[in-house]
Simulated scan of single mutants.
Amino acid sequence: MSAALVPEVPTLVLEPSDRTPRSARTFLAEWFREWGIADDHVGRLVVCELVTNAWKHGEGPIVVRLFLDARGGRPVVEVWDAGEGRPVAGPEDLAATSGRGLRLMAELVEEWGVRPLNEGGKVVWARFRAAWR
């Protein structure tokens, strides 16, 4: 009986800074290209929103993971941080100068969510609508 090989999940660990979103966008674009996904525009926008939120509202290093799910090979992005606060797409406030990113992201992806980590912190994830190959 042979053990099935599990593919390595592309992972990027970043220290929080104003350069973090750019590094995450570049990482996603490189992996989408590797997977043959030509249109990475939505992916770059989503990873930028999630990483920016982790940088501004989270704690500790930020971990970005990318993989293709078992349901049709859709790309999934996960962003981990040690902060306990959970992101919420709040009600629309036309006078606000920020707070629209999660609402916009939710419109662009198939689904997204948050799950706690056993060791503390959280993972915010998003599954894209299709693998645009």
Rank of each mutant, 00 (worst) to 15 (best):
R100T: 07
P91H: 12
P10S: 09
L5D: 11
V88M: 10
R129N: 11
R22F: 02
L50K: 05
A82K: 11
L5S: 13
V42C: 08
G73R: 02
E92A: 10
A106L: 11
E30A: 12
P21H: 06
V46F: 08
I62L: 03
V9H: 03
I37M: 11
E49C: 09
P91E: 15
V123T: 07
L14I: 10
L108C: 09
R25N: 02
V9L: 09
E84D: 13
G73L: 05
D39I: 05
V63A: 08
D39E: 15
L117P: 05
G73S: 09
E78T: 00
D69G: 07
R103A: 15
W112V: 05
E34I: 07
R19L: 14
G83S: 06
T52P: 05
G113M: 01
A131D: 08
R19G: 00
E107K: 10
E119T: 13
I37W: 01
A126M: 04
W132H: 13
V88S: 10
E111S: 13
A131F: 04
N53R: 06
L5V: 14
A106N: 07
N53F: 07
F128W: 06
N53T: 03
G58H: 03
D18Y: 13
N53M: 01
L117Q: 14
T97M: 10
G58V: 05
A126S: 10
R86A: 13
L12R: 09
K122F: 01
S98I: 05
V64S: 03
V124T: 14
A82I: 07
V42I: 15
V77Y: 04
R19E: 15
W31I: 01
A95K: 11
P7I: 08
P61Y: 00
R127S: 10
W31Y: 14
V77H: 01
A38L: 12
L108M: 15
L66R: 07
F32N: 02
W80C: 06
G90Q: 13
G43A: 12
A89H: 11
T52D: 15
W31N: 15
G101E: 05
L117V: 14
E78G: 06
G83L: 03
G120E: 00
V9P: 00
A96I: 08
L117W: 07
R127V: 14
G83I: 09
E30C: 01
A29L: 09
E110C: 02
T52Y: 04
I37T: 12
W125Y: 15
R65N: 03
A29D: 11
G85C: 05
